[in-house]
């Protein structure tokens, strides 16, 4: 082994050690557990093959509620945060008095712990004491019991997630906007392009690579959302808003069946890995075609 190889290995050794010990080993442990019987009355942890997987896949709860919920949530939150984040980034890319202030306000959600934001939102949407219902009454409308119905609960969760993650999109897209070369915009002005056409045919295509990266990273994260859903609804009412990470957590820690929880997690992992790869391919092709 020559000096260069030694240097390369030395550079990655600390990262590799941590990665293996705290990511690879747990993932393999979890995968192993998912093939065993982990219920309390089987101390030997018998190897049961794909039984846990079959159970999860046959579970109507998982198939009909959790999977559609997860994908619906992911698509909705990514789409909303992207559109809002892009609009805000475009706004902040102008020079105007008070821009620093607006930018600081927009960044506020990044400073709040998601779990606190979720608790606060839950409090604001409380059906008896919440400010939202108080506002509705003030306007002469009937109060709504937000967190006892599936779709309103879902809407509140979505709102919270969009609130939390729009600043992230805005920040990265703003950085992207600011690093675009000025020449195409100058050319567009000389070509008498309208503001909308400049946006549609210059800004958007040039920003697309940054957007692709944003969407893929955020989609993966949205797929594994846990804390805000857990805090706002706990998956309720009656498991109607469970995402797949909640499902895995409930199986493992509330029903005390780690194997089934792990099987659900592995299924989710496979789904998201495949989905992320497909998404990346499709978006990239979209980018190439638009070039």
């Amino acid at each position: 082994m020559n000096e260069k190889t030694r240097f390369m290995l030395a550079l990655i050794t600390p990262a590799a050690l941590v990665l293996i010990l705290f990511q690879v080993v747990p993932i393999l442990t979890g995968a192993d557990a998912s093939f065993r019987n982990w219920t309390l009355h089987d101390p030997k942890r018998t190897w049961v093959g794909f039984a846990n997987y079959l159970h999860v896949l046959r579970d109507a709860e998982f198939r009909d509620i959790v999977l559609p919920n997860t994908f619906g949530f992911m698509i909705a939150t990514v789409a909303c945060s992207l559109v809002l984040g892009l609009a805000i980034a475009l706004m902040l890319n102008n020079r105007f008095p008070g821009r620093w202030l607006v930018q600081s306000f927009v960044l506020l959600p990044l400073m709040v712990a998601p779990v606190i934001a979720a608790i606060m939102i839950r409090w604001m949407f409380n059906d008896q004491f919440g400010v939202v219902n108080a506002a509705l009454e003030g306007l002469g409308l009937a109060p709504i019991s937000w967190l006892t119905q599936r779709w309103t609960t879902f809407a509140v969760i979505l709102l919270t997630d969009v609130w939390l993650w729009t600043p992230w999109f805005a920040l990265i897209l703003l950085a992207g906007l600011q690093s675009l070369p000025p020449e195409p915009f100058e050319a567009a002005r000389i070509d008498a392009a309208s503001a909308w056409r400049t946006f549609r045919y210059i800004t958007l295509p040039m920003l697309r690579p940054v957007m692709v990266v944003c969407i893929v990273i955020r989609a993966i994260d949205a797929f594994r959302t846990f804390d805000i859903v857990w805090t706002i609804s706990g998956g309720g009412p009656a498991r109607a808003t469970e995402l797949f990470s909640i499902y895995a957590y409930v199986e493992a820690f509330q029903f005390l069946n780690l194997a089934r929880g792990s099987a659900a997690a592995v299924i989710g992992a496979i789904v998201i890995v495949v989905f992320a790869l497909l998404l990346y391919r499709v978006l990239n092709r979209f980018v190439e075609v638009s070039k």
Binding site: V25, I27, G30, S245, V273
Partner: peptide
């Protein structure tokens, strides 16, 4: 490993 969701390894 970037793609593997938290839930797949938080429990173990």
């Amino acid at each position: 490993f970037r793609c593997v969701p938290y839930v797949a390894w938080v429990l173990p």
